[in-house]
Design a protein around this nucleic acid. Sequence first.
DNA 1: CTGCGAACCGCAAACGTTTGCGCAATCCTT
DNA 2: AAGGATTGCGCAAACGTTTGCGGTTCGCAG
Lengths: 331, 331
Amino acid sequence: MTNPTLKKIAETLGISVSTVSRALKKHPDISAATRQKVLDLAQILDYEPNASAVQLRTRNSKLFGILVPSISNYFYESFIAAIEEDGRKNGYSIIILQSGNDPEIEQENLKLFRQNRISGLFACITPQTKDLAGFDKLRELETPVIFFDKIPPGQQVQAVCLADSAAGEMAAEAILHKKKKKVLALFGDRQLLITQKRMQAFTQTLTENNHTITLQTVHTCSSEEARVQTNRFLADKTNRPDTIFCMSDEILIGAMKALQENNLRPPTSIAVIAISNGFIPKLFYPEITYVETSGKQLGELAFARMLQCMERPLPPEEIILGSRLVEGGSL
Amino acid sequence: MTNPTLKKIAETLGISVSTVSRALKKHPDISAATRQKVLDLAQILDYEPNASAVQLRTRNSKLFGILVPSISNYFYESFIAAIEEDGRKNGYSIIILQSGNDPEIEQENLKLFRQNRISGLFACITPQTKDLAGFDKLRELETPVIFFDKIPPGQQVQAVCLADSAAGEMAAEAILHKKKKKVLALFGDRQLLITQKRMQAFTQTLTENNHTITLQTVHTCSSEEARVQTNRFLADKTNRPDTIFCMSDEILIGAMKALQENNLRPPTSIAVIAISNGFIPKLFYPEITYVETSGKQLGELAFARMLQCMERPLPPEEIILGSRLVEGGSL
DNA sequence: CTGCGAACCGCAAACGTTTGCGCAATCCTT
DNA sequence: AAGGATTGCGCAAACGTTTGCGGTTCGCAG
């Protein structure tokens, strides 16, 4: 079985294809009578326009692309979910491709996006991405590209970002406010812009106005490493930190495991604060206090920006999404 | 700027469009010399075939659809990630839509899939889905539909499923093996086939050969409810369960929170076992013992099945993915 | 009766590919 | 040298839409 086409409808009704086409989209040129006939038959035959043909003709695919390192990540998921939802409301479908943090796959994916003539792209680049040619090609085709989260440094592009500096600052302030003395701060890969920003703001806020606080900083690239490092610091009974700051969910997971190993439960034995999307902190009791970085909100922001860009070209701009402190009880 | 087309290449080279087309796909009719010329120019111009045109002509969209209740879920994510990865290797892109567990949106999404003439669909239906017409329409168009995880009951369809019964049985056996006496079992929505299967196998295995064990069963529809219920049972100090079984990750989250509230740490004070995809159990120390239901493996299985179905029509079959016990230390 | 503007509708081209078929030129056979 | 086979390429139709332009049929005013 094959799908009914305009032609089929036209033939059985004894009218022309163009009339059918116009009737279906309620063009004023078509009389109410024939329009109804067409609509009825289309209903009966389950007519559904062939998207490829429409795309080919109108040069509008009604497809958005999303490029992420991995889809299995609460932050990206909620970002994607938001785009998908807003997209659906606006008649767009989304194609998702994951780069696996491999620049080569990223290039391949960009090619697929171009071939599908997507109407717009939401992209989170890999840390190793140096060559933006693939993205530039899209822009040459007047396809808006909105970078999010991990964005190419020092480029004039459209981007929506989390308030990395502000989040780091906010976490530090919360710690200061609770008059903590000895902070262990766990950060991620120091190559990443996001790490640098969060760390810079955090350490500066924590130390500049306060000389009684001591800060120990560690970089880890995985949950497991975070766990091991935390354990190492907890082993030093005489000089144990009274607060742990985790830059990300991944790190928080490792740190929390270490705490459980040592039978420590916040906030009494030790305080914990993180920057997080909010899923992991709510798995523990008491829930972990965190500075929120909402993937959903970022997705909504990115989508709104996308719509604007599609109406008229916009000057490159980096929009920052504010963050807020969510009190959990661990600080 | 617009993308170069076959025509453009043909004109600048002074040859015909069909020759260009054939040269690009290394058709033997074309001489090595002209083929090379075409390839070179295509390279320079950054030629990329227009997917819509190809789709229209070949009636093959090279697109797979995935329909899930929500993308923000570790199980679905890993399923999707697997499909995406295998798909990319085979030249397919995927288009993802989420139903939000709303049958109406599900219908809308199916329409989008049909309009995009997807080559195949992976679908996880909502619990309320009664009307399969939308899916049937796809099948009438010879678009294979592979149901996964939540499948329409009592239908002749292609489906890949987790070994729900086997998983329930396996968990029960592990509990028996440890000679536990008093089990609290937390299950999900009793409407769901998955709940029924897991519960039936679990309770039967646990009780049929053993009269000294007592089993208390609870149904909950959310993490929070699971937490409250668990708390209720833990409050009864004299008759407290020595083991908690959680049918799903969602429930495990709630139960673990309750344990933490009561300052109980497995396995000494109480034992815990779950059926899970493996992410949540590894967040705790000791890690939770679980019967694995791998979204990744299920995705790979589904994809393989899809490829088979596309080669030749296959009789409806429900394929079950085996599960295994992953010892964490909580039992 | 002529002319004119609505109201409706069809023609045909175009979007960018793929592919069956045909045709010319070249090659190999005996 | 003559016949057939092979090589290399182009023509044109088709996939299913959209849309500018034009054409016909009215009604109605002049």
